[in-house]
Design a protein around this nucleic acid. Sequence first.
DNA 1: TTGTATTTGCAACTTAGTTGCAGTAAAATT
DNA 2: AATTTTACTGCAACTAAGTTGCAAATACAA
Lengths: 140, 140
Amino acid sequence: MDINNITQKLKKKGYRNSINRDSIIEILEERNLPLSTDELIKELNSLGLHPNKTTVYRDIYVLLGENFINEVDLLDGKKRYEINRRHHHHFICTKCKDISCVETENDLDNLETKIEKEQGFKIKSHVLEFFGLCRKCKKD
Amino acid sequence: MDINNITQKLKKKGYRNSINRDSIIEILEERNLPLSTDELIKELNSLGLHPNKTTVYRDIYVLLGENFINEVDLLDGKKRYEINRRHHHHFICTKCKDISCVETENDLDNLETKIEKEQGFKIKSHVLEFFGLCRKCKKD
DNA sequence: TTGTATTTGCAACTTAGTTGCAGTAAAATT
DNA sequence: AATTTTACTGCAACTAAGTTGCAAATACAA
């Protein structure tokens, strides 16, 4: 799903053009990694845009609500946002803070089914993030 | 590991008696579920103790550092703490907010090994929490 | 009983995020 | 083109979780 596509879909829903909101999508598309609002604002600044943080939070609220982006919590006290693509997890290097995407496909399905059966829950979602040392930092 | 045991271990390390810190351990032992500082302070109050939040945060800092408790993040913006026992995960009912412990034993080991091989990471820890409907709320 | 390090309370601060309100601007309607 | 509607934005003030500095209180070893 490219940017124009998303902008058009938003327009159909009654949203108006917003250079800030469009740029947030562009940035997230290009970086393809979860970014915090701080990081987003820095990227916007480097594009010559200087929206207030309130605006950024509100744009994110809309994009989350319309399911164009996802919220990611990497346990460091700030939410991050990434383009909503195939379900995946992350590996965070505790040394250099680098973030990688990790595809686990259906490795968790069996586990969820097992838990549902054993406990009687209906599992709707999960969070799974890995922490450790990346290739580079492993060597040092 | 019971409370006296923990208090004694702390004393050996140069810590002094603290009714607040001891009570935090007692509460966490008894409840056997992750509690937020708010919840901890309420429980302490009902024991006739009224420590300042700073004190509670500092007691938790010590107990975390000495590995008597663990920090748990259930993605609602506040940390929780629980007695450090066998590694496990949680199931959070999104309706009634009830928290259950989920033992996954070594279900994740294969997955971690696979990721380590494929990506070249050294995985040191992970967070895995499940969200959905508990037995009761499933019925409604 | 004294000395010292730990524990505690208080106030002020930080950081991430939210809310209310007024002003601006997109775009549909006339 | 002018008007109207409503989305978008900025600003300031606020909230909530957690932290820091400092001084006072307390545990406890000597």
